[in-house]
Design a protein around this nucleic acid. Structure first.
Lengths: 206, 206
DNA sequence: CGCGTTACTTTACATGATGTCAAGTAAAAA
DNA sequence: TTTTTACTTGACATCATGTAAAGTAACGCG
């Protein structure tokens, strides 16, 4: 019974999985590949993870732990004004996406065929939506939310703007730099959701 | 040699493929499924299409033919002002996406594993980008393009806003109606790309 | 009429990945 | 010393794609 313990072998597997996923630019990451890299037999993987999907899901949690997802989003929660919060969130999440894209890409690919994978990934994306909602609600509280949108509509829209797919298209397909992406998204979010007449990065409302 | 002919059997296959893809809400569409529905043997499929990918790609072309992709985009090309053109394009493409989503979903799923599928789908999406670019250039020509963005940047952004993935998120995940999607996108595109002080649906510039 | 070609059928099989099963082993724990 | 734990080895089931080969029924044509 090793259940949810942090045994060294389990960690080695997750580490191997992560390395392959991050390196793999389209390269398949098979169970046998992961086993080889972790230095154990393919069968041994199944002693720790029931399915490939489960391993992948656990890898995404592993990466959150490593890269400190929570800490990154903290500044956004600490922001005083809604505008600052919106900006901080765009910056934090926008900066985090490249870190998880390595595992995110295969996860998104699996969503189409694997129910479990879809559930796990959607759950995580829903958490992101909550971040969006919090930022929008902070704007609303400051009365700096554009009257064009309801809180829900603005949240949906912001969430879509900041989706991994959109980030992927802009940075991978269009060749945008990370810097350009974040700057553009800040501008776009500001211009879209903040009531007219309030400047970027000058959140002294009232 | 049946090469690129429109034989009845070939059409039957494409028809069957299309029906299954459109019906299939996550249901797998295997070669055997398509064969069964077309009323022929699985092997016969390979007499008309070398691979599953090729069949899927051909199905997307088939659907364009059926739904009249070209005709739908015509109004956009005919628009007098840039603003009208932008609006018409959002409306046309936004209205077209649900029609192709049935085949688009599996195509996008295949992109991750199949090089050919990726090339075919990207090619089609690139055509959409050209539509975006034309609309943005029309704004530029009218001097109604917001000075915040260059033509390229605006094109990339509009293209991403109008991507199938974004449409998918808003309509499938967030539950937006088609009407709401198009209206919101029109507003968003207008507010983002049209120079301030110009109203929606009143394109008399000059 | 006979002949060959076309379009399809049937059966069999190779491949490649996931996942299962069972027996064996080496070292730590009891 | 025995037992348990963690892993190894090798064999096998499954499932979809794609290949291969031989058979058949209809059709056009000299």
């Amino acid at each position: 019974m090793m259940s949810s313990k942090n045994t060294p072998t389990r960690t080695k597997i997750l580490q191997a999985s992560l390395e392959l996923l991050e390196a793999g630019q389209g390269a398949e990451v098979r169970m046998s590949d992961i086993a080889k890299r972790a230095g154990i037999s393919r069968q041994a993987l199944y002693l720790h993870f029931a399915t490939r999907t489960e391993l992948l899901v656990e890898t995404t949690l592993f990466v959150d732990d490593l890269k400190g997802a929570d800490k990154r989003l903290a500044p956004s929660r600490a922001a005083k004004t809604g505008i600052e919060r919106l900006e901080a969130f765009v910056e934090a999440w926008g900066g985090y996406m490249p870190e998880i894209y390595g595992v995110g890409r295969p996860m998104m690919a699996m969503m189409d065929t694997d129910e479990e994978a879809a559930k796990a990934w959607n759950q995580r994306m829903w958490d992101v939506r909550e971040g969006c909602e919090a930022a929008i609600k902070a704007l609303k509280a400051d009365q700096t939310l554009s009257p064009v949108y309801s809180v829900n509509q603005a949240t949906d829209l912001l969430w879509t703007l900041l989706s991994v797919r959109s980030w992927e298209q802009l940075t991978q397909q269009c060749g945008w730099s990370q810097k350009k992406y974040i700057k553009s998204m800040k501008t776009l979010a500001h211009n879209t959701f903040v009531v007219a007449g309030t400047n970027l990065s000058q959140g002294k409302s009232k």
